[in-house]
Amino acid sequence: MDVSLFAVAFNGVSLASILLLAAVGLSVTFGLMGIINMAHGEFIMIGAYTAYVVQGLLLKSIGDVYYFVALIASFFVAAAFGLVLEQLVIKRLYGRETDSLLATWGVSLVMQQLARSIFGAPNVNVVAPSFLNGGITLLGATISFKRLFIIALVGVTLFFVWALFYRTRYGRRMRACIQNREMAQCLGIRSDRIDSTTFALGSGLAGIAGCALTLLGSIGPSLGQNYIVDTFMVVVLGGVGKIIGAVAGAFIIGLSSTGLEFLTTASIAKAAVLFLVILFLQKKPQGLFVIRSRSLD
């Protein structure tokens, strides 16, 4: 087989960017709140369906530009759903990890069924904007514009998240809550507001991921289920709560999945990656990057 190494590397980076886009929101919520949000995949689904709805409303009138409107709309729609979920359910479950896991799993089932009732069970189709069709051939690899676009989108998204966390008052407060919640509260930070905003942000990021994934994958009620395991793996491997952790986790998993799949088969690669992650977590249960916490636990 003469698959060029460059092609394998590009596929790996592309997969890593997709995983990262799906995982960055989860990394934020998991890190800050210790909530195991099983409904994260459904926020990805909400983003994808938002793209579908926006396409239906705007494709005829403004053409390909609709896609940028859809990206922004997916963020806000998913964020709004996230806010509602936080207020109704998550808020009451802080500090109860197992309960939050079960409750959000239930929420994910409800949301899937809702999507099924509203849009019907069959997959729907989002037409990719025409300027993203096709690609260029470089060093024996086809670089598709859609995959390039997703890599760029991840870059931009990460930059905004980084700026928000490290260059704004909100970011500083949020980091204070991660490091030591009680002390932050003593200093007058409304940690409950920080929680709501952060959960909405994480959900919104999942929405963007959903909108981007319509370019490459299916849009149906069970869309989120296809990504949830991989996203958790990225977050757990990278270490929760740090953007750099999610980036490292996504790249390690993306490149090793693609490399192993190239050498063996898709099923074996999937199993092998899972096995390697388990082995790694035996050595370093907290993942690659650990947040130094000042809380006394």
Binding site: V3, N11, L216, N226, K270
Partner: peptide, 21 residues
């Protein structure tokens, strides 16, 4: 001959293998 798990979403590698074959 390639098989993927149910719900698999990324076919880049398999498509590379198809192109090579």
């Amino acid at each position: 001959e390639e098989y993927t798990p149910m719900g698999y979403t990324d076919y880049a590698t398999i498509i590379s293998k198809i192109k090579a074959a």
